[in-house]
Amino acid sequence: MLKFVVRRLLMLVPILIGLSALLFAWLRALPGGPAVALLGERATPESIARVEELYGLNEPWYVQYGRYLSNAVQFDFGNSTRTNRPVTEEMARTFPATFELALAALILAIGIGIPLGYLAARHYGRWLDNMSVTGSLLGVAIPVFFLAYILKYVFAVRLGWFPTQGRQDPRMDAEHPTGMYVLDGLLTGNLDASWDALMHLVLPALALGSIPLAIIVRITRASVLDVVHEDYVRTAEAKGLWERTITRRHVLRNALLPVVTVVGLQAGLLFSGAILTETVFAFDGVGRFVAEAISNRDYAVLQGFILVIAVLYVVINLLVDVSYGLIDPRVRVR
């Protein structure tokens, strides 16, 4: 198992090199070069030369790439051209926020999706099944930003059950050692702050989790429907085992294999998918920051963030593969 994890971690190296090269090439391929991209089309040759001097853009590409790589390895992605603060500092601020949001969305999606999918399969063809199939179709079909607006309008604006935007009431006197506000409140013993942050999370997490939730319901349902007809479930029945033993040990353990794969893929997508949700709820996370960086041509930010999101994606995939190996012994031997 350890060998398997190490091997998968080593695979990160070529992925990262390939990705960084792509990012690097992309930036150089911008019309007129990065300096023009930064200054706009009406920049004077003098100002272009000054910017190229400043960012080392007049050196040969391999020197630039080498420097870029060595900086990236040291976690130095330069400064944001917009806020003029180090990209890593922006990451430290926004990543915990999005991580918290994505985690909440994932917990919602898994916590509701798997039981609902299982129940739908067990009530195959009856109203609960039909409801969940229709509901999950809606969940996939409704655009996230639209759902986000509806949730915000109904539950925050109209009913006033939840706050409309942000991550925490600005009047809240709270410390943030980790940047994940719910956790911060628990760590500092400020339960009010935790609760407030949690209430701020509910609607964005619902919006962000809607697609993974819908997909998890469908995959779980289909998978359980397959597994209950397997011969080994009949063997378990023939042994006279309790129904809950059969469900847990023989049906769910097998049925969850494809669900794990889907959860992994969706978990990776949550980071990039957070752009819309974070924008609607003015949630100060990665998505919103990257969206602003795009419209402001903040290439240092984009380069750094894309690289880190890609690494996250690969790490999540590794976690999925490891958990797959934990559930399915047949994967372990290979």
Binding site: E230, D231, Y232, R234, T235, A236, K239, G240, L241, T245, R249, H250, R253, N254, L257, I327, D328, P329, R330
Partner: peptide, 16 residues
């Protein structure tokens, strides 16, 4: 196909 692929033989014997 009559044995559960993800559960050790031992568990499948002892459970009964």
């Amino acid at each position: 196909t009559s044995l559960n692929p993800v559960v050790p033989i031992g568990v499948q014997v002892t459970e009964v």
